[in-house]
């Protein structure tokens, strides 16, 4: 209730923009291939849900690609982070390097992935998504495993705790919030990887191809409705990650609400 109240100005703006667009398009009689009215986008979504541009089947394929890439990228990111954290001295070399390599526009690999795994295969999109996901997961988890309070390490040392015990009871719980921060970024990135991979070519029944195909046919109403679905999918995946976070680390300041999400 309180959240609703706080967001009243935002909701009003949304209503004003949608209403204003609708009125403007109707009053000025703007053609749909120039700018579609919000109501036209909604109609286009319903009309093309299962036939025509088949947005729903396309969304299923794209989501599969994104989730597959998310799973693969997260798994490799975790493995590499744990491997590097075994060598504490290498961290100061590996982290800046990984951050710099992360500055490469990884989507440039989309054409190679398309050629390697087949332009029509979902695996080519998963590969792009996975390489986008890998870096934030790896970098965040590595930070979490190594940025441990030095007093906590001294405490474990005072107990004569083995390295395995330190990892299990201190480093891994410490890395959990970092991992979930990475995961939240990664959900969006996995969808970007899948969609941009599709922009560089792919099956017709994918959201990326629907966006490109409808736009080149000047069916902007359908383009917008497909983009709406992409946006909703992104928010859905993000909210899922937030839910996981709330369940796993209820004690953390970011979940307790001391800082904005």
């Amino acid at each position: 209730m309180k959240a609703l109240q706080r967001n009243i100005p935002a909701l009003l703006i949304l209503a004003a923009i949608l209403g204003g667009l609708e009125l403007f398009v109707r009053a000025a009689d703007v053609k749909s291939f120039i700018f579609p009215a919000p109501s036209a986008v909604w109609t286009a979504l319903l009309d093309n849900w299962n036939e025509g541009y088949r947005i729903f089947p396309a969304a299923k394929v794209t989501l599969t690609e994104a989730l597959g890439g998310l799973a693969m990228g997260t798994a490799t990111g975790l493995v590499v982070a744990f491997a590097v954290s075994r060598f504490p001295r290498s961290r100061d070399t590996v982290l800046p390097l990984a951050v710099a390599i992360n500055a490469i526009p990884i989507v440039a690999f989309a054409p190679i992935a398309n050629n390697w795994f087949g332009i029509l295969s979902p695996y080519s999109k998963m590969a792009v998504a996975a390489s986008l996901v890998f870096f934030p997961i790896m970098i965040n988890v590595l930070r979490g495993l190594t940025d441990v309070d030095s007093s906590a390490l001294e405490l474990m040392r005072s107990y004569g705790a083995s390295p395995t015990a330190v990892t299990r009871r201190l480093r891994i719980p410490n890395a959990l919030p970092y991992f979930l921060t990475g995961l939240k970024v990664a959900t969006t990135l996995s969808l970007i990887g899948a969609v941009v991979g599709e922009y560089f070519g792919g099956l017709t029944d994918t959201l990326g191809r629907v966006v490109v195909g409808a736009a080149s046919a000047l069916r902007f109403d359908i383009t917008w409705s497909a983009i709406l679905v992409v946006a909703l999918a992104g928010m859905g995946m993000y909210l899922l990650a937030v839910t996981v976070e709330r369940v796993l680390i209820p004690w953390h300041p970011s979940v307790r609400g001391d800082q904005p999400a």
Binding site: D149, S151, A152, E154, L155, S158, R169, L170, P173, L176, I249, W251, H252
Partner: peptide, 12 residues
Amino acid sequence: GMVFQSPVLFDW
């Protein structure tokens, strides 16, 4: 047993 200046409790 050791007690530090900060409590060093594990948040989790």
